[in-house]
Design a binder for these strands. Sequence first.
RNA 1: GGAGGGGUGGCUGAGUGGACGAAAGCGGCGGUCUUGAAAACCGUUGGGGCGCAAGCCCCCGUGGGUUCGAAUCCCACCCCCUCCGCCA
Length: 426
Amino acid sequence: MIDIKLIRENTEAVREAMEKVGAEPGLIDRAKELDERWREKNAEVERMRARLNRESKKVKSAPKDVRQSIIDDLRSLGDKIDSLNAEADSTGSELRDVMLNIPNMPDPDVPVGKGEEENVVLRTEGTFPDFEPGFQPRPHWDICTELGIIDFERGAKISGSRFYVLMRNGAKLQRALISWMIDLHVSQHGYTEVYPPAIVQEKCLYGTGNLPKFAENLYKDAEEDLWLIPTAEVPLTNLHREEILSAEDLPLCYTAYTPCFRREKMKAGTDVRGIKRGHQFDKVELMKYVKPENSNAELEKLLDNAEEVCRRLELPYRITQMCTGDLSFVAAKKYDIEIWAAGCEEWLEVSSCSNFRDFQARRAEIRYRPAPQEKPEYLHTINGSGLALPRVMIAVIENYQQPDGSVTVPDILRPYMGGLEKICET
RNA sequence: GGAGGGGUGGCUGAGUGGACGAAAGCGGCGGUCUUGAAAACCGUUGGGGCGCAAGCCCCCGUGGGUUCGAAUCCCACCCCCUCCGCCA
């Protein structure tokens, strides 16, 4: 949530920001109006309640003969308060509903643009694979089926479309990547390893901003208030929900491996081949709780930590910055890391690194105390993948493929693969 | 899933209808004393909302209810602990 005070006091600036991200402009006017109405009603309720409290204290010592009439008066005052308070409450919850649907404000340095096509490629890194002249690199679904390390048909048989089964060295490669990435972030970048629940309560998803707007992308338990996480960002951000942290605890840096579940309902029909976009996938996530004044720098560091995975795997990648029109609902600034996959000839998004500023912190009530005795303030949250497994697998398999159909194991992963140098048909 | 016990401020823990946003102790912060530190002593110390301010309102697991008035009484739910059952 953005600060309601911004809407009250800087209405025009908020309107401009909403224009840039392509949000419905009426939301701001609606919020402003509801806020004014709520404050009026609430102030009235509080004035009446003050009177009720004051008079109630007198009842005990009131002379017997007037006592009953005072009580009668107060009872009717109480009834009035109840009904006016109900109005105030419903206005308040209407306001909250509107606020929950207002997206974050973009940072001033985010390029203005309407959509995906106006994102900016900041830089391209690494070297592209050097295949023999005349060799046409193949897509991973062909390579992996032939090697017997991914079984698409049986995945569909068990669970339907957009599911697959990793087999043998395919499963092992994923496991190696997970372990190696976590080790890298813990030992080289100073993150704390976490294994959180992959099923969470609804309020967690409000905290991160997945709800109320994006329910159609999520799986949920039909009977209980429990939802499958679409990313580890959800449990990691809720780890400190409704807490007040002390300044010296910050930054808190977490890394977690979890499965992720997405209904992908909106994307039906696209990317159905291969393992690029499944309903279930695995991810190693990076997440930070930081002081507001450090969030710019911390985002750059997190991006660099995620990039380190690409560098050490020696994969070609590029960094793009999202324009205002392609920012997520919650992000104030966002970079994507995309790895080049030589077989399907695509830049694959393997990480989105975002600064949410206090947007999620406000929703999830995560604060910190700048100094002892000082008032708590909302902190900033930052998050990015480090990295998403299936797409890194695609890139490794397609970029390290050999003309004989085998796949060379990147040097850095060999210790995690029992020394295996090459994945061959088995 | 069944039975019993319990959820109060950073922590321990009192509080069974009005003077309680809450005793006391510990911890934290500030000060006195001291060359410095410790001890001792004094003061201070939860969160939120509205308001220029004075101030007012709300919060004792959560949500309802009773009452002029609820931390305190009633109902429902949640969580934790112990025992039994089941189970990877």
